[in-house]
Amino acid sequence: MFEARLPQGQILKKLIEAVRELVTDANFECKPSGLSLQAMDSSHVSLVSLLMRADGFDPYQCDRNRTLGINLRTLASVLKCSSNDDIITIRAEDDGDSAILIFESPSSDRLSEFDLKLVDIDNEQLVIPDTQYDAVVRMPSAEFQRIVRDMQILGDSVTIACSKDGVKFSANGEIGSGSVRLKQSSAVDSEDDAVTVDLQQAVSLTFALRYLSLFSKAAPLSPTVTLSFSKDVPLLVEFRIADMGHLRFYLAPKIDE
């Protein structure tokens, strides 16, 4: 049997809200070490990669590897039936064709149970090579969300340039052009508010704002986001999930024709 109980159930709610517009169906790979998911969007331009380690659950039981194919729209609707402070348990019997979701109120006086039919998903898995990135930018996730939203006023794509001074987002379209420049923080009260640029070499790449906007829906998961860039390599956008794992998005860069 597979059973994973997540005391902070709202992490799962935030996760599924963050990916449901990008990916329709996904295989949850359940292993003794934890829960993972990898899925591309329908146009194969971006990739979602989720890891939730077993030690983030309490308890976590996985006797053998299981693949749970789940429609994320359905899962999102079911998760809306839970409260933010509910404890969420995912369970799957060894020979079952469904995943069971259990929502438990903090005082354990309300228990709801939903049985979701599993779906067969033909999922092409990609191998992501270890990459030494030219630049790694860390910033508040709310700031990332705001910049992506602001740049969308101007056009469909954004050019992100990392230098030793900081990071610059710029866009231009029919109505005009604009940019937002963030300097590296010198002194901040909280590390979560800091903007840092870890630079091997200056890099400038262009990406579709539509996808960055979808990625930024993960902002409620984590106060900070990390953007990793290398020339001619997909952008990595990473949100850490408490102490238990991460939600990563990869986006292929736009290439000048």
Binding site: S43, L126, V127, A252, P253, I255, D256
Partner: peptide, 14 residues
């Protein structure tokens, strides 16, 4: 004009 490329160009299939 720029073109979005697919991830498979960068990442190998399993």
């Amino acid at each position: 004009c720029s073109r979005q490329t697919v991830l498979k160009k960068y990442f190998g299939s399993k």
